[in-house]
């Protein structure tokens, strides 16, 4: 028997009346533990929708404070939050939407030293980080810890979303797609790093959708596929990602056996 308070039944009624969710599914959501890497452009829509959906434990890591230039897309934060730590502003926003939740905040950088300890408490990791070293770190750590990873990234008018189920030996990983970070000089320079703010909303909402589907165990999973979104031409493509037998991390003869830190070439 599911036990919901009257308020919860009302709050989650549009989920509960969906046959694919129901009271049982809503309980799964309420018991889920999801970790968001970054409380910025992607982390904002991700955390907002997960909080509204009732994800019981939401962890968020971000070492930065809210800057005026963030507000064009980072909708967790508002003008009165300027100079506040992002995780603090995020926690206030999320608690106002849904006071039922356990919001765990980490005002620090994610690195080789802390990532395993932090992610062990979560089922699903959503990567909305702003740099390649973190993306590779999150992929490798979720692989070693056997977690589900939903990775999103945005740049200019483009976005990409992919999901990896590191619990499954048949799932590809981020390195099957991109074996190594791009060489320095090939990544766009800081001056080129613009983004249409709303792209973060589209991509973050897709990440949150996949996280909820994984929690519920419904639908066709994105694991093993990559969504490529081109907002300029308004085109979505979904392509298959194969597990690469030569992958340096999850291939037959892995070269990477422990976490490694890459140098950040440019602070985007």
């Amino acid at each position: 028997m599911q036990s919901f308070t009257e308020e919860q039944i009302k709050r989650y009624s549009r989920h509960i009346i969906l046959p694919e969710v129901g009271g049982k599914g809503q309980k799964k959501i309420n018991n889920a533990k999801v970790f968001c890497v970054g409380a910025g452009g992607l982390g904002s829509p991700v955390a907002l929708y997960l909080a509204a959906a009732g994800v019981g434990t939401i962890g968020i890591i971000d070492a930065d404070v809210v800057d005026l230039s963030n507000l064009q897309r980072q909708i967790l934060h508002a003008t009165p939050d300027l100079d506040k730590p992002k995780v603090e502003s995020a926690k206030e926003t999320l608690a106002a939407i849904n006071p039922d939740l356990n919001i765990v905040t980490y005002k620090e950088y994610l690195g080789v030293d802390n990532i395993m300890e932090i992610i062990k408490d979560y089922d699903i990791v959503l990567d909305g980080s702003d740099n390649f070293p973190t993306r590779f770190l999150v992929n490798d750590a979720t692989y070693f810890a056997k977690k589900i990873l939903v990775s999103g990234s945005i740049f200019r008018f483009d976005g990409q979303v992919a999901a990896f189920n590191h619990k499954s030996e048949t799932s590809p990983c981020y390195r099957c797609l991109y074996p190594e970070p791009p060489p320095a000089g090939l990544v766009p320079s800081c001056q080129e790093a613009g983004v249409l703010g709303v792209i973060a909303g589209t991509i973050g909402a897709l990440q949150a959708t996949e996280a909820l589907k994984e929690i519920l165990g419904i639908g066709e999973s994105l694991v093993g596929r990559l969504i490529i979104y081109d907002a300029f031409d308004m085109r979505f493509q979904v392509v298959k990602i194969h597990k690469d037998p030569n992958c340096p991390l999850c291939g037959k003869e892995p070269k990477i056996k422990e976490l490694m830190a890459y140098e950040q070439t440019c602070h985007l």
């Binding site: 702003d130 990409q160 991109y178």
Partner: peptide, 16 residues
């Protein structure tokens, strides 16, 4: 053929 660029952005895009 689709040639997919490697993109890494997401959170803060500090333009220096």
């Amino acid at each position: 053929l689709e040639i997919v660029s490697f993109i890494g952005g997401g959170a803060s895009w500090t333009i220096n």
